[in-house]
Design a protein around this nucleic acid. Structure first.
Length: 491
RNA sequence: GGGGUUAUGGGUUAGCUUGGCUAUACUUUUUGGUUUGGGACCAAAAGACCCCGGUUCGAAUCCGGGUAACCCCA
């Protein structure tokens, strides 16, 4: 193929990830979004993206429902008084969009387009929760959120309106709230790591990097192919802060009134999608785990323009019927087979079946996997096993590849000089001994950020945290290290 | 947040410095024909100068403003 005739993605992911990402999202790529809606940061999601995104939503919804959460849908707008009720949370104000007019009338009290659910959900929780019998109270909603006058917007990474998912829980005790945070971590493991094959680390954030209004913030960070950190979920330990602001109380078994202990969990649907695209995709296009494919199998008839064609077509139809437990499409468009291969590879369809006169005559099926060069031909009776095997292999391979990349992007540095050197030459996480993730550590974190050209202290992993060695000292201030923290530049 | 670059058919783009006649090419779509096991070919047709204002006999081209996008740095 000559250079002028090359279509599809024209840059290499490893050489220019930013451009690769733009192309794969666009018309020339997998046709995921259209950014020409006309208002910056508000984009159109096209069918292929919607089907993948809906699948991610479904997996998360099933997981949180299995953990006892029930669905809600709250309105798009929030009364200003509610948005500002919790003092720290009111820090969101400079970033929200406002509705000030209703037709010709100027609103006396303006409405905010919801940035996040706390201040719209908790006034209602205050009405619904009365007694210890109502607890734990676990709700969730899947919806868009509109937020931030971002100057630089990118599909799935940064926008002014984006897809959102949030659980909001109320417990009788802080202990139960802390347990929920671990459950949230397990949900991330089950869905994001196991099903989507996207690796991440679940951190406890430093105190200076908490959600506005939280006592503690926990968050998952993944890595894009350029080594930039991307936060893909957060769980907040809200303590009593919002319960006090919104008067969420319950009567305990002794008949006394107590404030509820609250948590909220928010996997970032958009950013998870960005990771799914970025981590698995290659220079030919998207690569989707078998379960995530809007179409899992594409059947490509190879026609000769002679009397065997009818036989081939019938054979394809019969196959589709036989595979009805999967999402299968027959591409009977007029394009050449090569065109179709490329087209569906760009879309990331996990498996491809090629049927020509050979297969039709012999009663065989030729299969090709999205990631992997070899084609295999099997007999009809072996088809189901072959599909299961290939699908599993694909998932295992992309999972392994993603984990290997992720592990390779975690380095250790013992001194500040080493940290600066590693951040400069090897994008990803760097672990370093650090004084403290309490507020006193904030100054050290600021110095690290300034001297490394933007690396943040991301926190300490909630599971499998490393203990500092006896003589370890903070890379910045030289005081005794109490933690090993992860540092990374973010998107 | 700071700086830079750009905006031409549905998509990608030439032309802009030095204003001028029917605006370049590829792709796309439609029609007809030959094709089809890794992005086929021939012929014909369709389709564009981001918006507002200015300079000028004349603006895609120059000037001002707006809008939108991309890249680099913090």
């Amino acid at each position: 193929m000559t250079e002028e005739k090359k279509r599809g993605i024209t840059v290499k992911k490893t050489e220019n990830f930013s451009e690769w990402f733009t192309q794969i999202c666009s018309e020339q790529g997998a046709q995921l979004v259209d950014i020409r809606y006309g208002i910056q940061g508000f984009i159109v999601h096209r069918p292929w993206a919607m089907k993948v995104l809906n699948r991610i939503y479904t997996l998360l919804e099933q997981a949180v429902e299995a953990d006892g959460h029930e669905p809600h849908l709250f309105p798009t707008v929030i009364l200003e008084d509610n948005l500002t009720k919790e003092a720290e949370h009111a820090g969101f104000i400079p970033d929200v969009f406002w509705v000030t007019q209703a037709g010709e009338h100027t609103l006396e009290k303006k409405w905010a387009l919801r940035p996040t659910g706390e201040t719209q959900i908790y006034p209602m929780y205050s009405l619904w929760i009365r007694s210890y019998n109502d607890l734990p109270y676990k709700g969730y909603q899947s919806r868009h959120t509109t937020f931030r006058h971002e100057m630089t917007t990118r599909p799935f990474l940064r926008g002014r309106e984006f897809m959102f998912f949030e659980t909001h829980d109320v417990f009788a005790t802080h202990k139960e709230a802390l347990t929920q945070i671990k459950v949230d971590m397990q949900i991330m493991d089950e869905v994001i790591r196991d099903k989507l094959k996207v690796p991440f680390i679940f951190f406890r954030r430093p105190q200076w990097d908490k959600f506005k209004g939280a006592d503690d913030t926990y968050a998952s960070d993944s890595l894009l192919p350029d080594g930039r950190r991307l936060q893909i979920s957060s769980t907040h330990d809200l303590g009593h802060n919002f319960a006090e602001a919104f008067n969420i109380t319950f009567h305990n078994k002794d008949g006394k009134e107590e404030f509820g202990w609250q948590t909220c969990f928010g996997p970032g649907i958009w950013r998870i999608m960005a990771c799914l695209i970025g981590i698995h995709g290659d220079d030919t296009g998207l690569i989707l785990p078998f379960d995530l494919g809007p179409q899992q199998i594409v059947i490509i008839p190879i026609l000769k323009g002679n009397d065997t064609d009818e036989e081939v077509k019938t054979y394809c139809e019969d196959l589709k019927t036989a595979l009805k437990q999967y999402r299968v499409i027959i591409d009977d468009s007029d394009n050449s087979p090569g065109y179709k291969y490329n087209h569906w590879e760009m879309k990331g369809v996990p498996l491809r079946i090629e049927i020509g006169s050979r297969e039709a005559a012999q009663g065989t099926i030729t299969l090709a996997r999205r990631l992997g060069e070899k084609k295999t031909t099997v007999k009809q009776e072996d088809l189901n096993n072959a599909i299961i095997t290939l699908a599993n292999e694909l998932d295992t391979d992309i999972g392994r590849r993603a984990e290997a990349y992720f592990k390779d992007r975690i380095k250790h540095a013992q001194t500040k000089e080493e940290l600066i050197h590693v951040i400069k030459n090897h994008r990803g996480f760097v672990t370093v001994p650090f004084c403290t993730t309490n507020n006193e550590g904030a100054v050290c974190a600021e110095h690290i950020k300034a001297d490394t050209g933007g690396a943040d202290v991301c926190g300490v992993p909630l599971a499998h945290a490393q203990e500092p060695k006896k003589d370890d000292v903070c890379v910045q201030c030289g005081k005794k290290a109490t933690v090993i923290v992860y540092c990374a530049k973010s998107v």
